[in-house]
Design a protein around this nucleic acid. Structure first.
Lengths: 140, 140
DNA sequence: TGATATTATTTAGACGGCTAAACAATCAGG
DNA sequence: CCTGATTGTTTAGCCGTCTAAATAATATCA
């Protein structure tokens, strides 16, 4: 492994897994799986989006959203509702249960963000954010 | 989403998906799936590791390695061989096919690393690496 | 020595994520 | 108006990843 140890790519892979893991630990207490919180927050901001719009904002493929929504409907977090104008479109709405999780989810994210950034001062945090945004631009 | 947009955590999630996606595109041409290249490189460095040691270096859970190795054995990339001293241990060895992929994999990683870091000068790259290592420490 | 703890791995089953392909409904052009 | 292209979603099936629990073999210690 000596050839890529310390590579940004390699570190990124590890960080990603660890970050997801920590998120799952906290979200699990809310009865959520990692990724679902994104959909809930997005809908909390703009309810009634259709799947294509979720695909767009989550930067994910359509089948991924379909599956996630299936499970989230089954667990009572969101509801599907056919659009009246365009029969192809399924709009997604938060249930009360889904809406009630907004604040707890934000709390989880705040905690996780803080854990992620331990040991970095404010200047370093800003810098990291800037550098990561550049990387994001490169990869998307 | 306004509450966590631009959060390091949120950016990290996006970057991770995009990075994995780009990696998969390149690795697919070698007949590999993302993650398998790590195992191949590690074995290229030290052949004959057992699963626990792979679990350790990959920072992944045992069942993950079991499944990956099952597939990699099936596709002829590696071989399992029972340890003679300790019957619990399965040692893993590269096949010729697996060994032949060492250099192509490194090439893919080099390309991906370069794409990842476009637009960052040498100082920024070092800085990013340092900050990410701190984050890794925080999360693992 | 023999029962118990520890270690290494596997099985089962869930989830997020992807691609390829199917399906369904709307749109656009002749 | 009808046919073909486009758009929105789903289905099928694969992979990495996890947890919980089972299995098997070695170690430990009374």
């Amino acid at each position: 492994m000596k050839h890529l140890e310390g590579t940004v790519g390699a570190v990124l892979v590890q960080i990603c897994r660890a970050h997801r893991q920590k998120a799952q630990l906290k979200l699990g207490e809310l009865g959520l799986y990692t990724g679902q919180e994104m959909i809930l927050l997005k809908l909390g901001d703009t309810d009634g989006l259709n799947q294509s719009q979720l695909v767009e904002t989550l930067c994910v493929e359509p089948p991924t959203v379909t599956k996630m929504l299936n499970r989230m409907v089954a667990s009572g977090l969101v509801e599907r509702q056919q659009d009246l104008q365009d029969a192809r479109i399924q709009r997604v709405y938060l249930t009360e249960q889904g809406r009630a999780l907004q604040e707890p989810i934000l709390q989880v994210w705040r905690e996780l963000e803080e854990e992620t950034l331990i040991g970095l001062n404010e200047a370093e945090r800003l810098l990291l954010r800037r550098l990561l945004l550049q990387v994001q631009t490169n990869l998307v």
